[in-house]
Amino acid sequence: MGVVLSVRDIRVSYGSTQALRGVTFEVPGGAVGLLGPNGAGKSTLIKAILNLVPLSGGRITLMGQDSGALGPALRDRVGYVPEHEGLRPGMSGVGWVALLGELSGLPRRPAVERAHEVLQYVGLEESRYRNVETFSTGMRQRLKLAASLVHDPVLVLLDEPTSGMDPVGREEMLELCRDLVKQGKTLLLSTHILKDVEALCGQVVILHEGRVLAGVTVEDWTRSEAQHFLVQWEGQGSAFEEACRSRGWTVEPRRDGLIKLVLPVGEGPRSVFQAAREAGGGLNRFVREETSLEELFLSALHRNGANHAGL
């Protein structure tokens, strides 16, 4: 599959403030997470793709079609789930979705039929005739997802789609997103909820202060990052800890007797056992600790000297 979305060196300024400073990445397909602390430029990036903020430089390509920012015809291939409400009070759920379908080019009758289909797909078939202002937060999020799908887009831009949802609703929303990926849709998920990205995305783009800090697949990144182990040293004293420190590893003794080791890239379990032998003992327990995306994310921010207070 070719590249669905390509963003090249795009820049956006609000007056003298540069919100995006040469952002470049590609979305090959599947689900891609857009991570970053508050104010990193995630929403601005999504709006820039939709031509909702003017670009001061750069180029965006969708399905190989080139445009400074996506023009009306290309925007027909994109669905958008905004972060905020974006709903018209006084309209029924099905009326709202059908209207947006018509604005994306569907004739009246197919738009209404399609609205019913997508509302059923997102689980709102019982509430579709209710006015949108009576919907709960979770229902509104699903309604926005339905509205973004009514015209059958190739790419769906989701800006904080699980914001304000309870755990069950959040899991259902992620389940829908996973199903959409299976159906061949490409999702660009902007969020600061790292677990959503972990659960859904195969690729992550991290933004900070309008720049891309990192943009790799989660698997590649996990492999390339430092490795974390929890071990229990069978011997007495601190010989093992000193052996580890002498190798430049990070050693964190814990209250439960376990020692947390953080090894740099290139080192592995073999090195840990070797250090234990050199210290004159063995290991009673050896557990490889999965590095969470949160740790990777914070690590990327720290490497770049970023302040993550906004998280």
């Binding site: 994306s104 080019g105 197919p110 289909e117 799908l149 259902e172 159906q183």
Partner: peptide
């Protein structure tokens, strides 16, 4: 269990001119 009872279906109909 997924919340959706009906699978996603692609739209294959016509589109109005811009």
């Amino acid at each position: 269990m997924p919340v959706y009872e009906q699978g996603y279906e692609a739209y294959t109909g016509v589109r109005k001119p811009l």
